[in-house]
Design a protein around this nucleic acid. Structure first.
Length: 278
DNA sequence: GACGGTATCTTGGTAGAATG
DNA sequence: CATTCTACCAAGATACCGTC
């Protein structure tokens, strides 16, 4: 399969992209790098996974330098300043996935991937080959490419999670704190809920919960709560029986104008305009 | 009711201390 | 040594009032 690939492919997600949903694919690509081909030092605003199919190269992040070869991959998280370069004698051939979304960090964490632990190893097996084959055919899908792309991205993350050892070491209890906080948010978003209250429920100091939450999930508890509420509001918009005020109260905002302000900040348009565009 | 301005409250980032 | 907490302060969120 690898041999009949052209030197370089880039497929964009196309269609409507909403980076506030759980997982948002941006693009996928394949690159046979020329000798010494390099990137950076630079940062991106989204997650970026590379998987090396052939050859070798180096990847630098946070003063650490990793010598990588076929069968290995690396994660670049938003705002990570990194540098990577293909080998001079045996330059790498890699595929890459660019994506984002409020749940992205959680999925990556389940695969034990983050800025502190950006490297993974996975042999190029049938499962991965089939996935990459499907990614190549994404370019032929026009109307629903974003949906298919999201599905394939979930498949990649599933492969990486299954591939990880499963032991989360000291992160385990922290993960549980975050899971508990998220469960609480999912059950109580429709009430007036403060971060202090969530921290009390989890049994941690609010500042410490915020720190742990951000480390594990990539967003602060407040950001997560607000995004979750606004996504719920979007779902409620499809019910014509509910006024904007009804929806605001349904997701925990007593003041419809405050809801409108928050909605506009996150979605870029007022709730009314959003509903009209449905 | 929709919206804008503003005062007040809440939250998050950070550094460093306390605890086991 | 890792985990957890505390204090300070800036930034952002919220409540509330006035205007249209």
């Amino acid at each position: 399969m690898m041999d009949r690939l052209p030197e370089k492919i880039i497929v964009n997600s196309s269609s409507y992209i909403d980076s506030n949903v759980g997982l948002t694919p941006y693009y996928w690509g394949y690159h046979t790098c020329p000798a010494g081909h390099k990137y950076g030092p630079a940062a991106r605003d989204h997650y970026f996974i590379h998987y090396i199919m052939k050859g070798k190269g180096i990847f630098q992040l946070n003063k650490d330098t990793y010598s990588l070869m076929a069968g290995q991959g690396f994660l670049i998280s938003p705002n990570d300043i990194c540098y990577y370069r293909a080998d001079e004698d045996d330059p790498w051939v890699y595929t890459f996935w660019g994506f984002n979304g409020i749940d992205a960090a959680q999925y990556l964490n389940r695969a034990q991937l983050n800025s502190a632990n950006p490297i993974f190893t996975h042999t190029y097996d049938d499962q991965l080959a089939q996935l990459i084959d499907k990614m190549i055919h994404l370019s032929t899908i026009i109307q629903s490419r974003d949906i298919m792309f999201t599905g394939l991205l979930f498949q990649l993350l599933s492969i990486l999670i299954e591939n990880s050892s499963g032991e989360i070491k000291s992160e385990h209890t922290k993960e549980l704190y975050v899971k508990k906080a998220i469960d609480y948010i999912h059950r109580n978003y429709s009430n007036k809920t403060s971060i202090h209250e969530i921290a009390n429920f989890v049994g941690l100091d609010r500042k410490y919960l915020s720190t742990v939450f951000k480390n594990i999930s990539g967003v602060s508890p407040q950001e997560y709560l607000v995004n979750y509420r606004i996504n719920k509001a979007c779902e409620l918009m499809t019910n014509p029986a509910l006024s904007i005020g009804d929806i605001a109260r349904s997701i925990g905002y007593d003041d419809p104008f405050l809801f409108s302000k928050v909605f506009k900040k996150i979605k870029g348009c007022s709730p009314r305009n959003f509903r009209n565009s449905l």
